[in-house]
Simulated scan of single mutants.
Amino acid sequence: MITFSSADIGAWLATYLWPLARVLALLAVAPALGSFAIPVRVRIGLGVLVTLIIAPGIGPVADVGLVSPHALLILGQQIAIGLAMGLAMRMVFSAVEMAGEVAGLQMGLGFATFFTSRSDGSTLVVGRFAGLLATLVFLSLDAHLLMLSVLAESFSALPVSAGALSSDGWQRLVLWGGVIFAAGLQLALPVIAALLIVNLGLGILTRAAPQLNLFAVGFPITLMVGMVALMLSLPHFIPIVEAAIMQGLETMLGIAAGTRG
């Protein structure tokens, strides 16, 4: 008769519990797979499925009791690691949406907003369009599968143990945030530059003809020029997003490895 002791059951559960915490934390903030459009049950089921696939190959985990302060510490560390890796990729989409929102504000579409449950607030339509375009690029590159592959590799770079994510890993996440948001501003620069020239021209025109109704004339012009500039910049938009996604995947692994980029 086969019998199992409580220690055996605890060790078996720990083999799957610690990786599950890291996987679910990443899926909670990761783009596409962590979208609020996906039901919570589906995301949890996906996390469990990924854990069942990854866990047997990650090697031994920390041998601690599941009901102990040490276990809670390891659980918190795995959640922090998963969140940090997911945020590295989420920043790419946030920067792209920021670029769209900045461009939309310059075009005069600040009033054309709609409610989104993801951020519990209003979002500019141009920012939403840029976010959807980035999501399509993300899925077309199979980056969601690459992201899960990087997650699996992270267990080799940073195994499940009492060791926390190093300060270099957190520093890399902070530096990556600065780089990617600067790239987002650069994405919006063509539209901003074009509309700046238009606004300067409208300002000179208003000084030359004060009786001119600036709101009746200026808004259609800025909207049209903004749309044309956005259309002309789209062919250059996709390669930049692709490069940012690939760099985001490298940053995810670098965060787990605790190395500086």
Rank of each mutant, 00 (worst) to 15 (best):
M224I: 14
L46D: 03
E101N: 13
L223E: 05
A157Q: 14
P69F: 01
A256F: 00
A188P: 09
A193D: 12
F36L: 15
G131F: 10
I74G: 02
P39Y: 11
A80T: 10
L72A: 14
I9H: 03
P69N: 08
A71V: 07
W12S: 09
L175N: 13
S233M: 11
A28C: 06
G86C: 08
P190L: 01
A32K: 08
I204Q: 12
L124W: 02
I221F: 03
S167Y: 12
A80C: 01
V126L: 09
G261M: 15
P235F: 11
W18L: 05
A14P: 04
M246F: 12
I44M: 08
L214T: 13
F215R: 08
G169F: 12
V29Y: 12
P190C: 09
A143N: 07
L75T: 07
M231R: 02
M227D: 02
G163Q: 14
W176Q: 04
H70M: 14
L212W: 00
G178A: 14
P220D: 03
L27Q: 08
A143T: 13
A62S: 03
L132R: 03
L214R: 11
T51C: 07
I180N: 01
G226N: 09
A95V: 02
L195I: 13
G110D: 08
L234G: 07
L46I: 10
G127E: 03
Q78M: 11
A208Y: 03
Y16T: 04
S154W: 02
A244C: 12
L212F: 13
L175C: 05
G177F: 00
A7I: 07
E153N: 15
L212D: 02
L66W: 00
Q211F: 05
S68D: 08
N213A: 09
L202K: 01
P69Q: 12
A194F: 01
G131Y: 12
L46W: 01
W18I: 04
G108R: 08
G178F: 13
F138T: 10
L20C: 06
F93G: 04
D168F: 13
L148F: 00
V126R: 00
I192P: 05
V137L: 07
A134V: 07
I221A: 11
L202Q: 13
L158Q: 10
L146H: 15
A30Y: 09
A84Y: 02
A194T: 06
I58Y: 02
